[in-house]
Simulated scan of single mutants.
Amino acid sequence: MSDNKLIRKEILSIKPYIPGKPIEEVKRELGLKEVIKLASNENPLGPSPLAVERMGETIKGVNIYPDGNVHRLREKLSVKLGVEGNQLIFGNGSDEILVMLAQAFIDKGDEVIMAETTFSEYEFATNIMGGEIVKVPLKDYTHDLKAMAETISDNTKMIFICNPNNPTGTAVGRAEVEDFLDKVNEDIIVVFDEAYYEYVSDKNYPQSLDYLLDYENLIILRTFSKIYGLGGLRVGYGIANEKIISYLERVRQPFNVNAIAQEGALASLEDQSHIRESLDYNRQGKEYLYREFDKLGLDYVPTETNFILVDLPKSNDQVFKELLKQGIIIRSLSSYGYKTKIRVTIGLPEDNKKFIKALKSLLNK
């Protein structure tokens, strides 16, 4: 059997996504009893207690297919966001919506613009459909929207902007975004991925929902995986005008958001005290890690998210392995072309302290 005849050639260029190591795997491999994970930007407080209770009640009915239209969550979110229900689409995580976007809009040979250092799933979704990836270098670890606009050609079909950006934690401001949108042809889909939207404290951060009326080519992606603590359930959603949503609905799989996930997300929206507590822990953790990095003389990128990009005087892969032996999982950024940078999730106070203690020991060797 010939692979050349069997496999679509577009698939051969796809690099499988490598997730952060799971806690149980590290425990099993290294014989550890305690492991902390600061690698995947999860909420260290976990999900809302109200969500846990609601999900427990929902388990009894999992013999029934979920609501394929996600009616109750759609209704709740439309009121919260001030949009119509038909302006929302839901996915098995935002990742699934990225693939829907590629399936609905990208033809073979279409150009898709993205930052050189950003969320890897944009590249994955583009490659699936045979699109041509055009990467634009970051400027000061931030999307260079001016350069991205200058890169647009007659073949450009879609532009991805991760705001705040993963893995750098930076965000582009309102003025830059508005100037950029004015330069983009209406036949080009602009995707604002705002997975970390709730963590942003910069007052100059653009409220992208305000642009939906004026820019019909815009779609905004958000998720319940980060601040809402539901990463294991996979619930993401997109907001756009009803025409874009109608095209995405044509490629959406039926029953793609499971019943437990829908109830967990719905309850999470109702528990604002959990959001406030999560933000407070994140703010305190960020301030603590900034102080400790300063003491260690380490360069880091100020963040608008729940993670920090840090530059080390040693190989990031080496530090990753050494920390792993001590039961601390962080993210080496060698896959992004960085040799000494890591990404660390802001954890609970005791986890942050354990990480800093271990890092100090490694750097002093």
Rank of each mutant, 00 (worst) to 15 (best):
G229C: 06
V70H: 01
N352K: 06
V83I: 13
G229V: 07
P302S: 07
E132Y: 12
I59E: 12
N4K: 14
P66Y: 04
I128M: 13
S153E: 08
R222L: 07
D67M: 05
I59N: 00
I346P: 01
I330R: 01
L248I: 05
G264M: 02
E263I: 10
Y196M: 14
D179I: 12
G264F: 05
G109M: 06
I328A: 02
E123S: 14
L45G: 00
Q87W: 11
G46D: 02
V134R: 09
V134Y: 04
D271V: 02
P66E: 04
T117H: 13
V62W: 13
T118A: 11
G232W: 05
V190E: 04
N69F: 10
G93W: 00
V26L: 14
Q253E: 14
S201L: 13
I89T: 09
E116Q: 14
V177Q: 03
I152S: 07
Q262N: 05
E29F: 00
L333Q: 03
K360H: 11
I23W: 06
A171Q: 05
F224T: 01
D182G: 15
G61V: 07
L181C: 09
S246T: 10
Y281K: 11
L221A: 06
A240S: 15
D280S: 15
L218H: 07
I36M: 05
E84A: 14
K295N: 13
V190A: 08
E242R: 14
T340G: 03
I346K: 01
D67W: 05
V172D: 01
G61P: 00
D182R: 15
G285Y: 01
E178S: 14
A171E: 03
N43W: 03
E150N: 15
G229M: 07
V257P: 01
D271R: 02
A102K: 06
T118V: 11
V52R: 12
E34M: 03
F105Y: 14
P22W: 06
Y199A: 05
